[in-house]
Design a protein around this nucleic acid. Sequence first.
DNA 1: CACTGCTCGTGCGATTATCGCACAGAGGTC
DNA 2: GACCTCTGTGCGATAATCGCACGAGCAGTG
Lengths: 238, 238
Amino acid sequence: MNPTAQSRALPEIVVDSGMSKTLHHGLLILRVLSEHPQGLTVTDVAERIGVHRTVAHRLVRTLEAHQLCRRDQQRRIVLGTGLVTLAEPVEQDLRALARPVLDELAEATRATAHLLVREGTQDMRALMVVEPRGALVHVSFRPGQTHSIQQGSGGLALLAGGPPRSGERPEVTEARAKGYAVTMGEVIPAVIGVSAAVPSHRGEATTSIGVSVFEPAGLDALGGTVVEAAKRLGNLLG
Amino acid sequence: MNPTAQSRALPEIVVDSGMSKTLHHGLLILRVLSEHPQGLTVTDVAERIGVHRTVAHRLVRTLEAHQLCRRDQQRRIVLGTGLVTLAEPVEQDLRALARPVLDELAEATRATAHLLVREGTQDMRALMVVEPRGALVHVSFRPGQTHSIQQGSGGLALLAGGPPRSGERPEVTEARAKGYAVTMGEVIPAVIGVSAAVPSHRGEATTSIGVSVFEPAGLDALGGTVVEAAKRLGNLLG
DNA sequence: CACTGCTCGTGCGATTATCGCACAGAGGTC
DNA sequence: GACCTCTGTGCGATAATCGCACGAGCAGTG
């Protein structure tokens, strides 16, 4: 895509005053490493985050001490298992309650079920993905993925929970009427998403639950099942 | 346990020269937050990591910008969903290959199956935990947990893979003979662990696979099943 | 209402941690 | 051997950080 696919930087986070530059660089290293699971050298890391090599070296050492990265057999830097310890408590209540609901949804629909949460004002992030047991073909869709709230059934389902806005996508209006949102190929090519907002009795909904399928058949029945799962999870959340 | 259970600090990581103090503090904040899922105030955070309140404030802001923490409804600081994105690629190959093996092991034994990896030289960390479908009673055991390599069946299974050492625990010697290790109540009270080292054709084994059960009946058959699963995973890893 | 006690957030100067140069060791390749 | 790349380490100049002091918000209490 890019002229030099190697030089793709990742600004996206503005270094406001009132932010720690050093910590920012350290966290950038984690992001860079997460985008390069095969591992990177210190020089690579330094180039990608735009600091001197010795600076990257010290930051990597600090991350290593916290077990957030390590060296593989070829001494390349990869993410460390300390991250799974840190990530485990994240939204632990929501995930614990959602698991049985997602399990049942995946089993009932024989499709990949997912739980998305709003991140900031513009994005959605996949928090959980449950694949049906023994499905011959399944949608591969990793937790942690983010996409715009304007795309994908999960985002539209949340938008449909808000007040109608002029200029909103017609799919949002339709979702508001039906109670669930349907999109095709917006997050994953050729994959159809069917999602509903998880009702929240305190404030705006920030969570959606849904499924991903290949076949556009029986979407109404699927929508009903998804809406029911969303209601069930909403009740569990109290 | 402690006189003041609140004031328990967490040094454990020595601030070597050649480490970034600022990044170290930022990472300490993540650790502190992971131990307090209910959320903390800025003042709390500052006290626990031993920095001035304004310093903690700036670090928290930086973490927020990276979506590694956020404020809940009461403006308390909790971990953010960016962590699941960072943690997802960790040991992704190992986890992808281990999942079907763990699924089958949990199903065959009707017990909680787990995958542990060595962390440093002294500790083991749980990387995956799979609970059997529809089990009425299951061992609750979260990924990310760490414990000494000297305790628990997973650690002993790895020690049994090494050369015999004088003074090693008799369980290790026994595990070396049998091919699998058994411990009782060392990691989780009243829970029996049965683990085997995942064979690695390059270097020492660093991974164990095992199950957690309540009943001490049929441990030999269980051990055989676990060893078979470990061999299967070892073959998958090439 | 006033007072207390807690929290949060922000300029801004002194200090200190960081930055990055220069050097040296370790492999690997030609 | 010559060459290249990556790695790791002191150490001085510099710039980022630290932490004081200040003001605001909010809840409880007399």
